[in-house]
Amino acid sequence: MLRFLLARLSGLILILLLVCVCTFAVFFVLSPDPAVQICGKNCTPELIDQIRANLGLDEPLLSQFLSFVGGLFAGRTYGAGDAATHCAAPCLGYSFQSSQPVWEMVTERLPVTVTVAIGAAVLWLLAGVVGGLISALKQGTWWDRGAMLVALSGLSIPNYVFALVLQYVLVVQLEWLPFPQAVGFAADPWQWFANYLMPWTVLAFAYASVYARLTRANVIDTLAENYVRTARAKGLPSHLVVRRHALRPALTPITTIFGMDFAGLLGGALITESVFGLNGVGKLTADAISSNDQPVIMGVTLLAAFFVVAGNVVVDLTYTALDPRVRVKSV
C-alpha cells in the first residue's frame, strides 16, 4: 500500500512539473511581451526595461522557469533593493491587471467554486444514479423512455442556454427566486441558497444526464451477470438481489468517473459562473483570458491541473478500496 501511494505521489509531482513546463512555454514564450502590456500607453523604452528587470524577464528562459518553479515551492523576491517585493510560497506571481498576488486571487475565489461543485455533485449524483437505476429496473417502460429523453436533452442543450432560460423563467417571470446577489451563508442562508440553486441545477442537469445513461447501462449489464442469476437461485428477495448483487458492481466504475468530473469542476465552471455572475475561479479564468492576464491564466491552469491529477490519485485509491480484486492479491 505504501509502495502504491509512493508511486502515485511521484507520478503526481512529475505530471504537475510537466504542466508547469507546458503552461510556462505557452504563456511566457509564445505570447506577446508582457512588459509592453503592463507598461500601457504612456510608455518609454526605459520603463519597459525596468519592468522587465523587475519581473526577471531579461534573464534566460531556463532561469526564468526555474525561478517560477522556485517561487511555487519556496517563494521568490521580485526586484532588488528598496523596490524589492517578496512573494511568499506558493508564489504564482502578480496579476498584470490588479497587481494582486495571483495565489491570493485564486484562494479568494475558491470557496465559491467549491460550493458550486459540491452542490451540483450532490444533485447530479442523486438524480443521475437514482434515475438511471429506476430506468434500468423498468427497462422499456414509459418511465424509462421518458427519463432517457430528458437525459438526452440534458446532453444536447448547451449549458448557457439552459442557464438563461432558467433565469428568465424562475427569476423574471415566476419570481420564485430572488435576483442573485453575493451573500455569505451566515448573513442570509435563504438568499445564499437561492443564489446557488440555479448554478447547481444547470451544472447538475448536464452531468446527471451522463450519469443516468451510464448507471442504466451498467445496471442492465450487471443484471445479466451469472452471479445475479446465482443470487436469484439462492432465493434472495429481488430487492436484495438488486441492492447487494447488481448495484455495487454497477456503481463502482461510476465512482471513477465521478472523481474525475468533480476534480474538473474544482478548476472552475467557466460558463456557469459567468452567466450567474458568481465570483468563482471560473469567472476569474474568463476575465483573465479576456484581458490576457498571463500570470492569472497560468495560476488557474496549474490549479485545475493539480485538482485533476490529485483527483486521479483519490479515484485510484477509492477504486482499490472498493474492488476486492484489486485490493486483495490472489493466492
Binding site: 451469472n226 452471479y227 447487494r244 474492488d323
Partner: peptide, 29 residues
C-alpha cells in the same frame, strides 16, 4: 429456490460475485 432446490452452475468464477467474500455469499443462501 435455494432452500428446497439448490442449483450449481457451469462457470464458478462468473457465478460468484467478485465483490463479496465466499463466506458472505454462502451465508446469504
Amino acid at each position: 429456490r435455494g432452500d428446497r432446490i439448490a442449483m450449481i452452475f457451469q462457470d464458478p468464477l462468473s457465478s460468484l460475485n467478485p465483490y463479496y467474500t465466499v463466506g458472505l455469499q454462502i451465508e446469504e443462501a
